[in-house]
């Protein structure tokens, strides 16, 4: 759509700017303020320059959390996006079952995050949980509170359970927007189901899928509550993702300087990666 140039449109945006600025800029300034100061706990602060940033960037602990975070995010993206597309393709397009499927699939999205964590905790407990019991009865020694591999398996399974539906909903919305005429044309051309997927469905879903990737990327990078309730970051530090580590430093040890510096670096990493996704998406749209 060609838009008219109108600077007065700023007035429409003002309420949003005021609200978000209050919520984003003031707290962000607080964080910046802490990140360059040192305190000895008596509420007096000294200028500290960039030492916290240097500390964080050189700290093994931060590198480990970041690596775990990246592993987690890319693993769940690799599972959830293809799985979501496959499920959306297999869903009925019309009839009685459509709303039933949609409602049931949306259920995990609307459960508070700590309930999701608690639910999976009691579901996967090796002695009294259904999943833990099932796996152990297959002869596999499974205990997510003790073994690192099991903890990761449970964490990723939980996230797949929790968020694949969002991908399904978005992909499905892309699919139902394809007019029937496209399929009829493909039929006349004698296209197989792979060709239909590759040349009709996938291009039509591209936009919603980029949104799905972007949303899943941002949210999984910020994930805190579910892993915290499920594993508490353990066993050891093996599932301590970035957010969990940050809250430990900020609210647990009350090391405000390092925590603030870490927040800013953390935020910048997300910002940078999201910006890459965003520009790729917008470039496609303009073509």
């Amino acid at each position: 759509m060609n838009k008219t140039i109108n600077q007065k449109a700023w007035f429409f945006v003002l309420p949003v700017i005021a609200l978000v600025a209050f919520n984003a800029i003031i707290p962000l300034m607080t964080v910046v303020n802490y990140s360059v100061q040192e305190t000895f706990g008596d509420n007096t602060f000294f200028w500290a320059g960039v030492i916290w940033f240097e500390d964080i960037l050189h700290s093994e602990r931060f590198h480990d959390s970041l690596m775990r975070q990246l592993t987690f995010t890319f693993t769940i993206l690799l599972i959830e996006i293809p799985l979501g597309v496959i499920i959306a393709l297999a869903m009925p397009r019309k009839g009685f079952w459509v709303p039933v499927c949609l409602i049931l699939m949306s259920l995990p999205l609307l459960i508070p995050w700590n309930v999701v964590g608690a639910m999976w905790n009691i579901f996967a407990l090796p002695d009294i949980g259904m999943l833990g019991r099932m796996i152990n009865s297959l002869g596999i020694d499974y205990n997510f509170t003790r073994q690192i591999g099991d903890a990761w398996f449970t964490l990723i399974l939980m996230d797949v359970w929790h968020w694949t539906s969002l991908v399904v909903l978005l992909a499905y919305a892309g699919l139902v927007s394809i007019p029937d005429a496209y399929y009829q044309a493909a039929k006349i051309d004698g296209a197989g189901s792979w060709a239909i997927f590759r040349f009709i469905q996938l291009p039509k879903m591209k936009r919603v899928l980029t949104i799905a990737v972007l949303l899943r990327f941002m949210d999984s990078f910020n994930i805190y509550t579910e892993p915290f309730v499920l594993t508490g970051g353990g066993p050891g530090n093996s599932t301590t993702l970035l957010s969990i580590d940050l809250v430990k430093i900020a609210l647990g040890q009350f090391d405000l300087g390092p925590a603030a510096a870490m927040s800013l670096i953390y935020f910048l990493v997300i910002l940078l990666l999201s910006w890459v996704f965003y520009t790729l998406m917008m470039r496609d749209e303009e073509q």
Partner: peptide, 11 residues
Amino acid sequence: MAPAAVFALPF
């Protein structure tokens, strides 16, 4: 994109 963990204390 802002992680809630970053904003908890300033909020």
